[in-house]
Simulated scan of single mutants.
Amino acid sequence: MHTLTVRTRFTFGDRVRFESQLQRCSGIGTVAGIMVSSDGSVDYMIEIARADGYSDFQPGILEGELALLSPAEGM
């Protein structure tokens, strides 16, 4: 059996602000997924809550495009 350990700057449930030039989008959301490619690069899927109670998901956000929100900003 093999074990793979990955250290990421952000983890599931973290409230983050993102601004992605590659994806041409920005916003505030919650880390919902973390993808690690075969070359070791990490990108994130961000869940963005909508006013109607549903969520949108923005995949492909790079670690350098994210900033952790302070508790006051997360509200």
Rank of each mutant, 00 (worst) to 15 (best):
M1F: 01
M1I: 04
M1N: 05
T3Y: 04
L4K: 06
T5E: 07
R7M: 14
R7Q: 11
T8F: 14
T8D: 06
R9C: 13
R9E: 15
T11R: 15
T11L: 11
T11C: 14
T11F: 06
G13V: 14
G13I: 15
G13H: 12
G13T: 13
D14I: 03
D14L: 05
D14C: 05
D14V: 03
R15M: 07
R15T: 06
R15C: 08
R17M: 00
R17P: 02
F18Y: 14
F18S: 03
E19C: 09
E19W: 08
E19G: 09
S20F: 04
Q21R: 14
L22W: 13
L22N: 13
L22D: 10
Q23S: 13
R24L: 10
R24F: 08
R24W: 09
C25R: 05
G27S: 05
I28N: 02
I28R: 07
G29L: 03
V31R: 04
A32G: 14
G33E: 11
G33M: 09
G33F: 10
I34S: 11
M35E: 13
M35D: 15
V36L: 14
S37M: 09
S37H: 12
S37P: 11
S38Q: 12
D39Y: 07
D39R: 10
D39N: 15
G40S: 13
G40N: 10
G40V: 07
G40D: 07
S41H: 12
S41P: 12
S41N: 15
D43C: 13
D43A: 11
D43N: 15
Y44A: 07
Y44F: 13
Y44I: 02
M45W: 10
M45A: 14
M45Y: 09
I46T: 01
I46G: 04
I46V: 05
I46P: 03
E47S: 13
A49E: 13
R50Y: 06
R50Q: 11
R50D: 12
A51E: 14
A51K: 15
A51I: 08
A51V: 10
D52F: 09
G53L: 09
G53C: 08
Y54I: 05
Y54M: 05
S55L: 04
D56A: 07
D56K: 04
D56Y: 03
D56E: 06
F57E: 03
F57D: 04
Q58N: 02
Q58D: 00
Q58M: 02
P59S: 11
P59N: 09
P59Q: 09
G60Y: 07
G60R: 08
G60H: 11
I61P: 01
I61C: 05
L62F: 08
L62D: 08
L62S: 14
L62Q: 07
E63Y: 11
G64R: 09
G64P: 00
G64H: 10
G64W: 05
G64Y: 08
E65D: 12
E65Q: 08
L66R: 05
L66E: 01
L66D: 03
L66I: 00
L68I: 11
L69S: 01
S70W: 01
S70D: 03
P71T: 03
A72D: 04
A72K: 06
A72C: 01
A72M: 00
E73R: 10
G74F: 00
G74L: 06
G74A: 13
M75P: 02
M75K: 09
M75Q: 11
